[in-house]
Write a protein that binds this DNA or RNA. Structure first.
Lengths: 137, 137
DNA sequence: ATATGTGCAAATCCTTTGCATAGAA
DNA sequence: TTCTATGCAAAGGATTTGCACATAT
């Protein structure tokens, strides 16, 4: 078993997630570097590697990772849920034609002039999406 | 025919939209004041008023209004498309427990430090969602 | 007339679920 | 064993589509 697989197993356990073969496969694909994936993408990458994991398990696993803080879900696209393995503070830039997402460092972009939050509420998060399109010539 | 219905008809025509009875009904519900609605909400309000408009027509109409700039679609909720009749520059605050949206004046909130856009692209829009939750005591 | 819009039901697409089997502790 | 996870197929829910009928110009 590779070192990276050992550390992934440790990471899952640290988040209260039992390390099964399928979860380690998915973790290896997704958690090793910051990226944006959909369930469909994970499924097809697994397939390309010859790993057979069911669609249900892919969804279960991604949702579990998200619930335990290993992934963030992004409601950016009306038809598909994006999972973001960069869990630090950052915003997104999206190419509207392709849907492709890029990260924007949250330390570079700042929001100024936020209003007071409604009474009895606290900040749960801030999502910023800059949408760009191919320039019309 | 009421004055407001006349001005709605003019507004539709000005956006290249033929003014049918159903479209005027929906326009009256949605365009007269800034608000956030889903297709389901529009459908049930029409029903409450005794106006029978099919689900397909509600979707067609809301999408048409959005395509012609009378509404903005919001990809904020993974399961449902919100239509926003405030088409001016503004951001949103969402109560995570209920999904309820509030407007934030974009002149009050400012984004500072936007990066350069990728070459050959132009800004299509900026979406900001401040998510708040009930404060844990 | 001729083009456009509407309504219904069926089709789609993403995601979740029920349940029997397989695997882990 | 005993609990938990997986896989399959079916179910679910929001949205779109095909097509016949109605409406508008």
């Amino acid at each position: 078993m590779s070192v990276s697989q050992e550390s992934l197993r440790a990471k899952l356990l640290a988040h209260g997630i039992g390390a099964t073969a399928q979860r380690l496969e998915i973790a290896a694909l997704v958690l090793n570097e910051p990226q944006h994936v959909t369930a469909e993408v994970v499924l097809s990458r697994l397939g390309a590697l010859g790993r057979r994991v069911s669609k249900a398990t892919v969804y279960n696993t991604l949702n579990l990772f998200a619930a335990r803080g290993l992934l963030r879900t992004l409601a950016i696209d009306p038809d598909v849920t994006w999972f973001d393995s960069n869990t630090g503070p950052h915003f997104h830039l999206q190419q509207v034609e392709t849907g492709v997402l890029m990260d924007l460092d949250a330390t570079a972009v700042q929001l100024v002039g936020l209003p007071e939050l409604p009474l009895g509420t606290e900040l749960a998060g801030i999502d910023v999406v800059i949408r760009v399109r191919k320039r019309a010539e």
